[in-house]
Amino acid sequence: MTERVPILRIRQVLLVSIQTDLDDQDVLLLQDDLAQAVVDSGAHGVVIDITAVEIVDSFVGRMLATIASLSRLLDAQTVLVGMRPAVAITLVELGLSLGGVRTALTLDKGLRMLEDDRVERGSEGTAPDAVAHA
């Protein structure tokens, strides 16, 4: 019953929306797929939407932290969006604070966060961007 979580690309952002209760193998598969997708697409951001997720245990927590670290190495920012209050409370009690993973209330706010980042980074003046804007 292995199922792949679809990874959508919207311009320079990869979007993953977890909708089902994933087993551990699906979770590892998603981690691999996402790392590959970041490299293939050259995306500058990854948004993981967990609005529909009712449970985040330490295994999924570790996957999220790993994806964040991986994408940082591949020059992409990860934003985790839509965590439910009950899930947040449980994670804190479990002892997971997901340090290093950026979060946003909604998908919209998460996308805007990545945009703002890019503008900031762009304003530092990397040559190719400057040419592209001109």
């Binding site: 009712e54 449970i55 295994f59 439910r84 009950a86 479990l94």
Partner: peptide
């Protein structure tokens, strides 16, 4: 809801 979530998470671990 919070207690449900805590219990299911513990069960998962």
């Amino acid at each position: 809801l919070v207690d449900q979530t805590k219990l299911i998470t513990a069960a998962s671990e």
